[in-house]
Amino acid sequence: MKVLLTEDDPNLGMLLQEYLNAKGYETDLARNGEEGIKFFIENGNYDMCICDVMMPKKDGFSLAKEIRMKDKEVPIIFLTAKSMKEDTIQGFKVGADDYITKPFSMEELLMRMKAIFRRMHKQEAETQANTFQLGGYTFDAQTNTLTHNGNQSKLTTKESELLKLLCQNKNQSVSRSFALKLIWGDDSYFNARSMDVYITKLRKHLKDDTSIQIMNMHGEGFKLIV
Results as ranks from 00 to 15, higher is better:
V3S: 04
V3E: 04
L4M: 07
L5R: 02
T6C: 06
P10S: 11
N11V: 03
G13I: 10
Q17F: 01
Y19M: 09
L20V: 09
N21D: 14
A22W: 07
G24P: 02
Y25E: 05
E26C: 05
D28R: 09
A30R: 03
N32Q: 11
E34L: 15
M48F: 07
C49Y: 01
M54T: 04
M55D: 01
P56C: 09
D59V: 12
G60T: 03
G60P: 00
G60H: 04
S62L: 04
K65H: 12
E66T: 08
K72V: 07
I76A: 03
F78D: 03
A81Q: 11
A81P: 00
K82E: 13
M84R: 15
K85C: 06
E86S: 14
T88L: 02
I89L: 13
I89A: 10
K93I: 11
V94G: 06
G95I: 00
D97L: 00
D97C: 08
T101Y: 01
K102Y: 00
S105W: 00
M106I: 11
E107C: 04
E108V: 11
I116F: 10
F117T: 03
M120L: 12
H121A: 10
H121M: 11
A125Y: 14
E126Q: 02
F132G: 06
F132N: 05
Q133R: 13
L134D: 13
T138M: 11
A141I: 01
Q142N: 15
T143F: 12
N144P: 04
H148D: 00
N151A: 08
Q152W: 05
S153Q: 02
T156C: 00
E161V: 00
K164P: 10
C167N: 14
K170N: 14
N171T: 06
L180C: 07
K181H: 13
L182M: 14
L182P: 03
W184Y: 15
D187R: 15
S188M: 06
A192Y: 06
R193W: 07
S194R: 15
D196Y: 04
V197T: 15
Y198T: 12
T200W: 08
L202G: 07
K207A: 13
D208A: 13
I212C: 03
Q213P: 03
N216F: 11
F222K: 11
K223T: 09
I225Q: 06
